[in-house]
Write a protein that binds this DNA or RNA. Structure first.
Lengths: 212, 212, 212, 212
DNA sequence: AATGAATGAGGGTTCATTCAT
DNA sequence: TATGAATGAACCCTCATTCAT
């Protein structure tokens, strides 16, 4: 309350980079890289144009920093927690639920940004492909592989399965941040995760009760 | 001789908008909307900058035309063909396979473009959400609903199921056009469709053979 | 008379580069490279900023083009004319007078610009040193060498002599374009050339008439 | 221990302006006025940006101070020393040699800076023209006038002669600080002075020994 | 006195758009 | 209809200058 209005020309060297990155993500998420103006980022961050350049050497550098910032904070934690479960099925539930839980609290989708800008940021795209998207898929395929080895799951292609699991989650998350959907209520990420896991584990084909 | 050139001109005059749209899509897919230059579109289309403005009043108008152009050409055909099948399962296979087959021949992903630019083109986003993405999901959920009614499928949320089916397909298609993936071979769309349908229909949980 | 006021948006592709270079030289001469604004160049050239970039890819490129443009147009002609004379003395007079005559008609000094910007344009400086300044000095030292061989001149260092001849000419020309000199009337280039040649050829020490 | 640091601080406080001016000259000489950054000056001076503004109100003020600082320290001494000689010839030698000796030890040419920036600093240019360049020329023309009066030199225009003497010296000094000259070895200032005086006093025309 | 984070006007450059030919 | 030279608004980035500490 007392510190609500930050004074002009306040010196906040430690806090600035984080504030600017947060502002940048908000703007980049809303408009995409090219349509975002540094001045808008600055305004949202409560500073002026010049200050942004005090901490980031260019718009591109800011974009890269913003992407790299928001990426893996929790993936390791998710993996660790999930692997504490004993059955592959439980590991899968745990991993997916933790993942989607994290998504629900975010106000933007990094995937969305990367999809849009990969062509213009090749190195960043490579990084994202390997260290973000790839790591998530590998975590899931490892669990599935384990499940197959344990005879919990029938033999199948774990990499493909990982894609099948990621697809609806990532795309729905992107959709949430892309299309305002007044009437058609988009499912929340957690409900989607439940349905997805149910379907992937059990399928939808009816298995008629064996007759007496 | 005397009539061939006028004839060709005539043909071109009518062909121009299509040629420009095709060029625009190629450029937009490659670079995104903002990073695309009208001059590049013109060069690819084999005309000059001014000519583009003869047919499209602005870069935005060209973008909208390009998006609207490439969407529905085959959805009705797919629907028709799929519904010719008798079982819901066969309808699902037919619809999904026809859909992914169309994707394989495209050199860009409209979804990718829309995801990137929805924020900057609200009306276009609305159109895409309702008339493209929405129609595909509705087609799939209709089939699933039919399958449930027929007792082919166990009771479930058809809309959610449609999302689960669309997710991997759309996202993989986007991925193909976003990340060059030298080592880890991305699955082709058809293989993905097969696995996806197999999993969604049957699940992956092992069902131990009933003992003798 | 009829074409005095060029209409807006007039297309003059052939004439533009020359007009822009002329304007650029005027501005660069007046303010130096860094303090010159492209917009000022454009205004003087009768176009807008964008048009400058139609013909020159950057401010630096414009500077280089301007320097290279104004350089050697007449050096070869001077050399040719001077060497038509028979005595070294006459050659020297001819060369120097033709050189200074050219200067008098110019409204700026390229040397001045190069002196100021050599540090910021290393390749251009090299070019200027070798192809402009160097060529003039070589022309003069060649004549002097010839004069020594002909016994017209006493033995001396031709390169040094060339520097001694160039110094006052170049510096005075620079001065003319650098310091507005209301009271102290700067000598015109031609008078300077005469005095310079007279002194260099004959010295200023009095040689008392040999007594009868 | 307790007083050494305050003492040093005290010393530094008084030394600061001079240190900053020295740094400024180094930077201005290397890059020219516009391309020089206050921050670079500060770094070379061992202080920070803000400190520069503690002693100089603006970049322009710093430039003016730097120019005014480095000019006249020795001119009076040169004049005095030279006029101690009896013959005009010896005075000329003395003055020119002392002048070029001072140049050899400098790592930059003030003339060069003034030439580049005169247009942007009219008052400073006027000052330089009158108090620096002008005073040197007047010193030389006074000596020559004296030589003519003494019948040491034949009648000629002393002002013009002064220009002829200054030209090679000033220009060569500028050249040394402008063009790196790997192959063609630029003469050092002292050798140039010798040759210059020899030529100006004696000319280069051969005077055949009178036959017996 | 000294610092250096913050400011913001200014200028180079791009590119969608116009229009004379 | 087609061209492409010309336009000018927009935006990134720099750096002289200010001022809270």
């Amino acid at each position: 309350m007392s510190d609500s209005i930050p004074a002009r020309r306040q010196r906040r060297k430690e806090a600035r980079p984080g504030e600017i990155i947060a502002a940048a993500l908000a703007i980049f998420h809303a408009k995409g890289f090219a349509a975002s103006k540094i001045e808008d980022v600055a305004r949202v961050a409560g500073v002026t144009k010049g200050t942004v350049y005090l901490y980031f050497s260019s718009k591109e550098a800011l974009f890269k920093a913003a992407i790299r910032e928001t990426i893996l904070p929790n993936l390791d934690r998710i993996k660790e927690t999930a692997l504490a479960e004993t059955t592959a099925r439980a590991q899968l539930y745990s991993a997916v639920r933790l993942w989607t839980a994290g998504m629900s609290t975010c106000r933007g989708s990094t995937s969305k940004l990367m999809i849009a800008e990969a062509g213009n940021f090749p190195e960043l795209a490579e990084f994202y492909r390997d260290e973000v998207s790839g790591r998530v898929r590998r975590m899931l395929s490892d669990i599935i592989e384990y499940g197959i080895a344990q005879n919990e799951f029938r033999p199948c292609d774990p990499a493909m399965l990982a894609r099948i699991l990621c697809g609806p989650i990532v795309l729905s998350n992107i959709w949430r941040h892309t299309f305002v959907d007044p009437h058609e209520n988009q499912p929340d990420m957690d409900a989607l995760a439940d349905s997805l896991l149910d379907v992937v584990l059990n399928g939808i084909v009816s298995h008629p009760k064996a007759p007496l």
